[in-house]
Design a binder for these strands. Structure first.
Length: 482
RNA sequence: GACCCCUUCGUCUAGUGGCCUAGGACACUGCCCUUUCACGGCGGCGACACGGGUUCGAGUCCCGUAGGGGUCGCCA
């Protein structure tokens, strides 16, 4: 027998955007598929008429694509298969694995409330299981609506979980849950089993919040006489307050991280290592490397807290891994968007942009940091920072800057070396330390008191801009100290 | 409440009976580098939830307790 093809799926329901928990699940499945040379599929579970929103499907798919998760084969939409599901609940009634339940939703709610108040089991009391054939026939003839319930067998069920090993549950702990609504449409668990079977899913990898569903689904598989897939319940991603991430609690969806300057590879990398370990000391990997080293036995069983700070650290590493050219390319539209420059201006100054990237790269943790840190490379400072003003906006600074402006203006070539020498010469002439010149100059050309090395800034900015900005700053200082 | 899962530094994790005076990463922090800010380098802080067993020996196996999480819809 040839080994079964690995076929896995991610099954989002369009009731919200793609949050990191679902993203992490998608990555786990994707990694398993790609590592094994199998197929990664997407199924949209959009059968909830009330909560599903068609307009949410596209953003979810976009987020998956952004993470680099390309799926194989066509997307399966559950909403298009509703009629297909119907016959299976009927089949289960006929085979004796399910029965009709005429209890009204109101009655069931009352049952539940009573059970809760009496602290009894919150399971269906099987009222309709004992209905005789005649009673059923009479109700049917009277046009009474019925939902279809699975008839749970005696005994216990054990399955081997890829992550947690053997898990056992007494069947009596599981109620005769509804597999088809009174309109005949399949509920979640039935639909999932049918789909996973039809899609020939080999591994069902999902969050451990689905373990109870797995037991229910196993009974459906058995009733239908189908072979079980391998189940793996990976740990959940928790918020810092240890609750599972959810849109309802205001957690960010994946696209928000994108907007905040997180790289898809960094997110992919970080999410991969949540609840899974390469079992080495190395943490930074490209998606390609993660596919290579993936091992489905390395999942952890304990839930993991999502730490945005560590995500940011991963992002920093991935930024350093990117070439200056690639960073410049992704940054260009962002700079235009931020009104720092124009597309037209950038077209002829590619090298300039790349130089700016080189200088700022070690200081960036997010792509957006480049925007914040680079403004003075595109626009003359209109404001000067607090610290700089306090220290440099004094009358003594004026002659220093004037002398420097003159020297810089007289330079034949404006390089790292020539600007450094000019500043050193001026310092020597004034008999003061270079620092006395460096700081006011930095403030004059950038408006802030920190950043790349001064000579790097000067050489990048260019002679004309530097002289102009120093002179302008002199005027500002004169005005405020007058 | 019932059931299921889980429990190593604040967080993510390594550790599969002796290699553990428990390793790495993020965060925090000291020093060095740098007349700025980062980066980098070298240090520091900091954990086996608790209690019983099993064993010559337990973070590693077993049991119990506590704690955390999840599930208990004609939602998915």
């Amino acid at each position: 027998m040839t080994p079964k093809e690995v076929r896995v799926r991610i099954a989002p329901s369009p009731t919200g955007y793609l949050h990191v928990g679902t993203g992490r699940m998608a990555i786990a499945n994707y990694l398993l598929a790609r590592h094994a040379g199998g197929k990664f599929l997407v199924r949209v579970e959009d059968t909830d008429k009330e909560r599903s929103k068609a307009e949410l499907i596209e953003p979810i798919l976009e987020a998956l694509k952004w993470l680099g998760l390309e799926w194989d084969e066509d997307i399966l939409y559950q909403s298009k298969r509703i009629d297909h599901y119907r016959k299976f609940s009927t089949q289960m009634i006929e085979s004796g694995h399910a029965y009709r339940c005429f209890c009204s939703p109101e009655l069931l709610t009352a049952d539940r409330e009573k059970a809760k108040a009496e602290k009894g089991p919150m399971r269906y009391n099987r009222r309709c299981l004992s209905l005789s054939d005649d009673e059923v026939k009479n109700k049917l003839d009277a046009g009474e609506k019925f939902a279809t319930r699975i008839r749970m067998p005696e005994g216990a069920t054990t399955y081997n979980d890829l992550v947690s090993g053997d898990i056992t549950r007494q069947n009596e702990e599981i109620e005769d849950f509804i597999i088809a609504r009174s309109d005949g449409s399949a509920t979640y668990n039935l639909a999932v089993v049918i789909d996973d079977h039809d899609m020939r899913i080999s591994h069902v990898i999902r969050g451990n919040d689905h373990i109870t569903n797995t037991f229910k689904q196993i009974h459906i598989y058995k009733a239908l006489g189908w072979e079980l897939p391998i189940f793996g319940h990976v740990p959940l991603i928790l918020r810092p307050d240890k609750k599972k991430v959810s849109k309802r609690l205001g957690d960010k969806d994946v696209s928000e991280y994108r907007n905040e300057g997180i790289l898809p590879d960094a997110m992919f990398n970080y999410l991969s290592l949540l609840g899974w370990s390469p079992k080495t000391d190395r943490e930074i990997y490209s998606p390609k490397e993660l596919i290579e080293i993936f091992d489905e036995t390395h999942f952890n069983a304990a839930n993991a807290v999502f730490d945005e700070e560590k995500l940011e650290a991963f992002n920093r590493e991935h930024i350093q891994l990117m070439s200056d050219h690639d960073i410049a390319a992704t940054l260009a539209p962002m700079l235009v968007e931020a009104d720092l420059t124009t597309k037209y201006w950038l077209e002829t100054r590619w090298e300039y942009l790349r130089d700016v990237v080189t200088l700022l790269k070690p200081r960036a943790r997010r792509l957006s940091d480049f925007i914040e840190l680079s403004s003075y490379f595109f626009l003359a400072p209109v404001e000067y920072d607090e610290k700089g003003r306090a220290k440099q906006f004094v009358p003594e600074t004026i002659p220093i800057l004037e002398g420097l402006a003159e020297r810089f203006e007289g330079l034949n070539e404006f390089t790292l070396e020539s600007t450094e020498k000019a500043l050193a010469d001026e310092a020597e002439k004034l008999e003061i330390k270079k620092g006395k010149l460096i700081h006011p100059t930095r403030l004059a050309v950038s408006g802030i008191s920190q950043g790349p090395g001064l000579y790097d800034i000067l050489a990048t900015l260019g002679q004309e801009t530097v002289v102009e900005r120093i002179r302008k700053t002199i005027e500002v200082i004169k005005k405020v100290t007058a």
